[in-house]
Write a protein that binds this DNA or RNA. Structure first.
Lengths: 227, 227
DNA sequence: TAGATTGTTAATCGATTAACAATC
DNA sequence: TAGATTGTTAATCGATTAACAATC
């Protein structure tokens, strides 16, 4: 194993930048559909509600250079961003847990934008095992390990009940899974070579709730004159 | 209107802290269920995979003080965190868009952990208008405005198709909605007094994909000796 | 008392913002 | 040419980490 860490920062990359890339990609693809040849960071920044310099710095990670006064070539930039994210090739994923959320993720057409294909679902519910949901075959959970090994699947979308999250993650890790996209609120324990990305809806709601509270407080203060 | 901005930082709060609070709350509630009286930040940090000093600093926002050598009183801390997030009272929300994702959100039991109640859904699909999904009544989208005004609903969960996102947001804002939890990839334009929180799944996937790519690259380098 | 733990202040690190030179 | 835009360097801001005093 080579000595450098898997930390993004060792490559001079910022997580913030990477998180913004899909939004840029979305804008770029729209422009491509409109057959626009060039795009400026001013334009992108305006849509994103951000300063153009942020966009320029972010796009620099792709290695693409722009032309002063004209901007960046849309087609070139689009494929560079796709390539950077690894979204230029199809990647296959399994999903464990086909309840409400799992079902929604199975049916979510948007994943194709990222070239992500869910190729099978796994659950313990006998009512759905053996059936297809949104065209995707559901297998019993106890076949998860064998099928990860057999098909060498690299990514698992985890949407099981909280209490089962660690157990299912352990099975997948043992089978050699490389990345887990964790939609449960559970904080998983996992070895260093596995990448886990937690999608934390409660965190988002917390920010919204707190800001709403502060807004309400502010309005209240505004309505009632200070004593 | 009072002069201070709605920025959290003006209150000395960090977004990072607020995002972690729900995870703390989850741990605290578990401890409460186990009738534990005290908890140390060492314990919480260990579960979260973070240093205890982060936890201590985060928990300081609640105003609760701990006892050296013992820790924090679980019951006291739990309700303080709930109160801080505004999750001690029920809050009602509407959901616009009852497709795959909207349906999953409607059926998601976890919202009750945050005292969030979805009280009605809105869609343009005639097949589901007038029906109940997961016990929640679905109304035609064109009644959204009237019902926000009538019931004075403060939060809208936005799960409509991308292309409709701005339009529906505008309607809700006109009707006086205060917060929008945006599950679409659309970047909304909105007035300053409205709070919008975007739940950006693509951003999370981008981080996962990029890290996976780097991991693969690293393994590849490890397997093939340097020339 | 000794030591685990809290709480705070200072140092470091990372990300954003400001300033500005380069160039088509 | 003039000016819009790129690309880079420096300054600021915010969050994390390190260090350490206080205390039960």
């Amino acid at each position: 194993m080579i000595g450098d860490k898997k930390k993004l920062t060792s490559k001079g990359l910022s997580v913030a930048t990477i998180r913004r890339l899909p939004s840029y990609l979305r804008i770029l693809r729209e422009l491509e559909a409109e057959h626009k040849e060039y795009v400026s960071t001013t334009y992108i920044g305006n849509i994103m509600g951000q300063d153009s310099v942020v966009v320029r710095k972010d796009l620099a990670v792709t290695g693409i250079v722009g032309i002063p006064k004209r901007g960046y070539k849309v087609s070139e930039l689009t494929s560079a961003v796709e390539r950077f994210l690894g979204w230029h090739n199809h990647s296959d994923a399994f999903i464990a847990g086909v309840g409400h959320l799992g079902r929604a993720l199975l049916g979510y057409k948007g994943f194709s934008d990222y070239n992500l294909r869910i190729i099978a679902g796994f659950d313990v519910n006998k009512d759905i095992i053996g059936k297809k949901i949104h065209g995707i075959q559901i297998f019993p959970l106890n076949e998860l390990k064998g099928l990860i090994e057999k098909l060498k699947v690299k990514m698992l979308i985890l949407a099981v009940p909280d209490a089962a999250a660690q157990e299912v993650a352990d099975i997948a890790i043992e089978a050699g899974i490389q990345g887990i996209w964790n939609f449960t609120p559970a904080k998983l324990k996992y070895p260093e070579h596995v990448i886990v990305q937690r999608e934390d809806m409660a965190a988002g709601l917390a920010v919204l709730s707190t800001k709403l509270e502060m807004q309400t407080l502010k309005d209240g203060l505004g309505a009632i004159p200070e004593e």
